[in-house]
């Protein structure tokens, strides 16, 4: 087992899985809305790595996966933009972005 063996699809998918798990953990546990948005970005990037790696190793000629990744980047940028607009609108009202401070809706 040499350290210099070529990097395979499994390595990329493992990296994506680690990033995705970190993002999911952050999205579910962070208290600040801005940090949650950053965790969501991490998850989106994990998906992109997965798509690009699978595209490279299963169908390198067609590049469909890479095109899918480009679309997914655009969509997540749009979503984050919308999310930040919501956070800003709420900040103007209540001067906080902490999700814990929002007590008005309960279970």
């Amino acid at each position: 087992m040499s350290l210099l063996q070529p990097v395979g699809v499994v390595s990329f998918m493992a990296l994506a899985a680690v990033l995705f798990s970190l993002g999911l953990y952050g999205a579910l546990s962070r208290k600040s809305a801005v940090m949650v948005l950053m965790s969501l970005e991490l998850m989106a990037n994990a998906v992109n790595i997965n798509l690009v790696a699978l595209s490279r190793f299963t169908a390198p000629a067609e590049m469909t996966g890479q095109i899918f990744a480009v679309f997914s980047m655009v969509v997540s940028a749009a979503e984050i933009g919308l999310g930040l607009a919501l956070v800003l609108a709420l900040y103007r009202r209540s001067q906080t972005v902490e999700l814990d401070a929002m007590q008005e809706l309960k279970g």
Binding site: A27, L28, A33, L40, M43, V47, E79, L86, L99, M102
Partner: peptide, 16 residues
């Protein structure tokens, strides 16, 4: 707005 933000955060998590 709070309801919408919570809806957004959860909905985006599930989208991802």
């Amino acid at each position: 707005l709070e309801g919408a933000l919570k809806y957004f955060l959860l909905s985006m998590t599930t989208s991802l």
